[in-house]
């Protein structure tokens, strides 16, 4: 058993290291394109004043009907550099780094197990609706993350491996999935954020939770309500960075409102950066929710958690629920419907 774990951990480390190496290789090695040089070659006999104007794009008339493109797209090269020089390798480092940190953490610290045996008594933590919302959102997130990553880096891997026809279909499917599921994800994210807003309002004890590092290392368990500091942080990252992702995504996905080329460039850059942050953080969320914490995944799977788990990770919530039960002894947690139970057991 132990040996098996070691092997898998080693694998993770190797994967991570290879990603790091790959990211170095992927860093743009080409010379920067020089549109000025290209157009200098392409257009003769234009004096310096005109050049200045070419770059400003003032007072020009285009033979293309309704075109609002300047003669020279000054920001195109900037966008290219931001995307290829910073976002692409940066994202690789971020994602790879996150995986590495998690792997190393797992190797060093291991799973956060329950301190006490399971009580066998269950508490309702997530209603069916909430679980459905979570998993829908999670599925969409994963698809978008994978397709997004494919749009960013896929060309370095799959075309060479599988050939043009496969790649053509794969990348087209990727783009269609990304563009059509993106708006769905946006809606889901908004709904989820709205639904769980009240659970995630920061409380004083959350700061203490953070000061103690969530108790991850020291093995102590700082106070936490229904959502602990870490979960709230994830919520607020989703509510901020996630919002950036969906807004920028929607701007790009619906280029029918006269978005300029510059707007598209900037939204693309923001979308890339924000998405990669989100994906990186999601690795942490996924780790904690699965391999990192004993009993966490079953809460989102079944909706119920063991009281021991609740006491250890969300002691304030546990206390609250117990007080409420004491105040209303008629209720029977085992038979009451989810929603009624939720009203009782969930302080929102």
């Amino acid at each position: 058993m132990r040996a098996h774990f070691t092997t898998s951990r080693l694998l993770v480390v190797i994967m991570f290291l290879s990603l790091m190496v790959a990211s170095l290789w992927l860093a743009p090695h080409a010379m920067a394109a020089d549109p000025s040089a290209e157009i200098g070659q392409a257009v003769g006999t234009v004096d310096a004043d005109t050049w200045r104007q070419v770059k400003d794009g003032d007072n020009s008339i285009d033979s293309r009907h309704d075109s609002n493109y300047n003669l020279i797209n000054q920001s195109g090269e900037t966008w290219r550099q931001i995307r290829n020089r910073w976002i692409s390798p940066g994202g690789l480092i971020a994602l790879g780094g996150m995986l590495a940190v998690l792997a190393i953490f797992y190797l060093l610290v291991g799973r956060n197990d329950l301190d006490h045996p399971r009580s066998g008594k269950l508490m309702l933590r997530w209603t069916a609706l909430e679980r459905a919302m979570h998993w829908t959102l999670a599925t969409l997130f994963l698809i978008l993350a994978i397709t997004g990553i494919n749009l960013l880096w896929g060309k370095f891997v799959f075309r060479n491996i599988f050939g043009d026809v496969f790649w053509a279909n794969m990348i087209m499917a990727t783009k269609l999935a990304h563009n059509y599921l993106g708006p769905l994800f946006s809606i889901m994210l908004i709904l989820v954020l709205a639904k769980w807003l009240s659970l995630n309002l920061p409380k004083k004890h959350d700061f203490e939770w953070f000061r103690q590092g969530g108790g991850m290392i020291k093995g102590k368990h700082p106070d936490a309500g229904f959502a602990n500091g870490g979960e709230k942080a994830w919520y607020w990252i989703l509510a901020s960075v996630g919002l950036v992702v969906i807004v920028s995504g929607l701007v790009m996905d619906f280029p029918i409102f006269g978005q300029t080329r510059d707007v598209m460039q900037w939204t693309n850059a923001f979308h890339g950066i924000a998405s990669l942050i989100l994906i990186a953080v999601s690795f942490g969320h996924i780790y904690i929710g699965t391999a990192g914490t004993e009993g966490a995944l079953e809460g989102m799977k079944t909706g119920y958690v063991d009281e021991t788990w609740a006491k250890q990770h969300h002691n304030l919530w546990y206390d609250e629920v117990k007080q409420a039960e004491a105040a209303d002894p008629q209720s029977d947690p085992a038979t009451a419907p989810d929603d009624a139970l939720a009203r009782q057991q969930r302080p929102n």
Partner: peptide, 9 residues
Amino acid sequence: YCLYACPFG
């Protein structure tokens, strides 16, 4: 993307 990057539209 090619349009965003292209210096000449």
